[in-house]
Amino acid sequence: MLPQYALSQLLEALFAVVVAPLALGWVNQCRAWLQNRRGPGVTQPYRVIAKLFRKEVVLAHQASFLFRAVPYVVFGCMVLATGIVPMLATALPFAPAADVIALVGLLALARIFMALAAMDTGTAFGSLGARREMLVAALAEPALLMVFFMPSLIARSTSLTTIVETLAHQRVAVHPSLAFAAVAFVMVMLAENARIPVDNPGTHLELTMIHEATILEYSGRHLALIEWAHALKLLVYATIGIALFLPWGIAEAGHWAGLPTAVLALVAKLLVGGAALAVTETVSAKLRIFRAPEFLATAFLMAVLGMLTHLLLEGTA
């Protein structure tokens, strides 16, 4: 029994690591189409990562061991996060090691290392990026936790697999609180993945950068790992959103026959989700940095309101 589960766990993590750049490529391609460009094709992120791996690393003089270790740590955190999120199946032997709160903790660990690395070289843009990234995180992280707490309250568990199994069975039950949670989650996801309107992933205009400023000093294999981790993060968020709010089709423990359906369902949802993300990004403009807290405070309040709604309307006593 257990070896099978371990295999499914390993396969899922591998699937995520391999597919993540493709998902990013799909979003970029959709954006290109919406902007009337031909676009580089969906496999472009692979080519970028492969190119970066082959290049040499140029390290700043004052970069310490921390700076060199961070890309690996960030990548490790993200791969681990994919091991917790039920993407295809809920049979994940690793899932009991970390629940949603630990998942948020893992993402925070990666982000804090990223911010520390940005401050390590002691450049103006690096520390500016670290400050902004931490600011966005300081407001997005509580919102994310509050979002996770609503399904946790419904499922009476903070384990993601249990939540997904519970929610997947409640087709009929309507939870208005989940609507609040979904909206808040999308806002947090945009902020945390450095997407428009909070940040612009394509920007290289110095003064508006947030995430880009933190990785400015990275090059070569380090940058490749960070870019890959970034793609993984987007995939993690997307699959969390799918697992929480559109859990249908995910194979449950012991249902191996459901796996092909699960793969198809996930691919379909990711295609639609990626296109929706591209549309959102195309129709909205980037916010001024000090409007970002308002955006995130809205997400936070949405999540709190959702929790109140849950307690008022969906009586769980």
Binding site: F53, V57, V58, A60, T121, T123
Partner: peptide
């Protein structure tokens, strides 16, 4: 891959 690393002033 190779592990080539070069030290330089920060890009910034």
């Amino acid at each position: 891959y190779h592990m080539r690393t070069r030290r330089a002033p920060p890009w910034d």
